[in-house]
């Protein structure tokens, strides 16, 4: 008798929780795939394609499907770290095959050399280049992501990538260096993180 009751009780509980889960899966069905959005949010949105995908979102989708997280040179170590934290995987060193981490750059068109071919305009993934056919082009520096996709198509090589320099407005204090590391016996461990 007790066995019967307990089986009934278990059955009831199983049915109840099954119904709850089923209801929840319908009621709280996520719109889109939030993990892709979260990954996309971490990627630097340079849209440079160095990862081998045509833009950051495709790479985000690829990561969500198991692609390694170390293919983004513009994001560099910090992006890899953030992705590792988000996805709870081991952070990997940046894959050199896709490029190196460089300081942030911005494209500058040497305007007297520009022939107005519009090739760079077509290449720019974020529409940060202004100009028209046979007219001189210019880069909207504040919108440029430094992806350097415009450099190759230029037939006259008039686009330079220049690193963004720190100004008084963008400067900020760096972390203090622990003094004792500078003492002789510590000389051998300068590479070690604090």
């Amino acid at each position: 008798m007790i066995i019967l009751w307990s089986i009934l009780a278990l059955l009831f509980l199983a049915a109840l929780f099954g119904a709850l889960l089923g209801y929840a899966s319908v009621r709280f069905k996520p719109e889109g795939d939030p993990i892709i959005d979260q990954i996309d949010d971490i990627l630097p949105q340079t849209q440079c394609g160095q990862c081998g995908y045509p833009g950051c979102r495709p790479y985000a989708e690829a990561i969500a499907n198991g692609d390694p997280i170390n293919k983004c040179p513009p994001g560099g170590e910090s992006t890899i770290q953030e992705l590792a934290d988000l996805l709870d995987v081991e952070p990997l060193p940046l894959d050199a095959e896709h490029g190196e981490e460089k300081p942030k750059q911005v494209a500058i068109i040497r305007e007297d050399e520009c022939i107005g071919c519009t090739k760079c305009i077509q290449a720019c993934p974020v529409d940060a280049i202004l100009g028209a056919a046979k007219q001189m082009h210019t880069v909207i520096a504040s919108e440029c992501t430094g992806c350097d996709l415009c450099v190759d198509p230029c037939p006259v090589d008039c686009i330079d990538m220049v690193p963004v320099e720190t100004s008084i407005q963008t400067w900020h204090w760096q972390a203090p260096q622990p003094d004792y590391k500078l003492i002789a016996t510590d000389a051998g461990r300068s590479g070690e993180a604090a």
Binding site: V126, D127, A128, T145
Partner: peptide, 17 residues
């Protein structure tokens, strides 16, 4: 600031797309 900028880049990229 970087995040704001990358957000803007994303929007511009999507608009272009």
């Amino acid at each position: 600031a970087e995040h704001r900028q990358s957000e803007r880049a994303r929007l511009r990229f999507e608009a272009r797309q």
